[in-house]
């Protein structure tokens, strides 16, 4: 379980995240939707301190994240980025094994074996020796998901994982994410894919202007949004 309390983040004069509380329970898929600039990506990046929050606390399974345990805590919440950020000088296999081997001290043979299993899971076992530059966007993102899974994280953080993809490649990435959700992976997904959120999310959070406007099940949010800002946002995107 990951729990963040009263997260604030400023960028100069912009108050990007305004005292947000968020909890993701084990096995839960939580989607964050909302207009551009609503602070949803910033919130996600605050959770693993890629952005340092101005204030607030973050806990995983009751252990508070601090400067000293940051690295260890980060291994528990692997992140998938909008722009994939695969290591361009490493092969697909090395991309997946570099962190387990160097950060967690996993044996190379073990890490390779696990990486091959994960590549199979994302349907790319034939690309193990390819380099990122030879992959399509959808393939890159599936490798990025495999790389995140290789750390055996407690939770996966997705930062708009399909926003940089050509439309025809969105499906293959969402399919992998659905599969993970079915297997009980804990996921926090910032997304513009309303169809995915509706189908897969246990809970949906609607964010606007740095605040959580409302949280509810897909049905509550999409069919009976209680807040007027949610209603007007959904009217625009659906």
């Amino acid at each position: 379980m990951i729990k963040a309390t009263n997260i604030h983040k400023h960028f100069n004069d912009l108050h990007a995240v305004k005292g947000v509380d968020i909890t993701v329970n084990d096995g839960e898929v939580l989607c964050i939707i909302g207009p551009s600039g609503s602070g949803k990506s910033t919130l996600l990046r605050c959770l693993n301190m890629l952005e340092t929050p101005d204030s607030g606390t973050i806990e995983i399974d009751g252990v508070q994240l601090t400067e000293n345990n940051l690295r260890e805590m980060r291994t528990k919440m692997a992140m998938v980025f909008q722009n994939f950020n695969l290591f361009s000088h490493l092969s697909v296999l090395e991309n997946i094994t570099v962190a387990p081997v160097n950060v967690k001290g996993v044996e190379k043979v073990q890490a390779d074996k696990k990486a091959m299993e994960l590549l199979k899971l994302v349907g790319l076992e034939d690309k193990a020796n390819a380099y990122p530059r030879n992959l399509s966007g959808g393939q890159k993102q599936r490798v990025a998901i495999a790389r995140a899974l290789a750390m055996d994280p407690d939770i996966l953080l997705f930062d708009e994982p399909t926003s940089a993809l050509d439309p025809e490649m969105v499906g293959e990435v969402l399919d992998v994410m659905k599969k993970l959700a079915e297997e009980g992976m804990t996921m926090l997904v910032v997304t513009h894919e309303m169809g995915f959120a509706r189908e897969v999310a246990d809970d949906i959070i609607f964010m606007a202007d740095g605040e959580i406007v409302e949280r509810g099940t897909a049905e509550q949010i999409f069919e009976h949004p209680s807040h007027e800002r949610t209603q007007s946002f959904l009217k625009k995107v659906l």
Binding site: L50, E72, R74, T75, M79, F87, A99, V103
Partner: peptide
């Protein structure tokens, strides 16, 4: 960022 997010020092 990707490297940091994987817990690298």
């Amino acid at each position: 960022e990707a490297a940091q997010s994987l817990g690298m020092s």
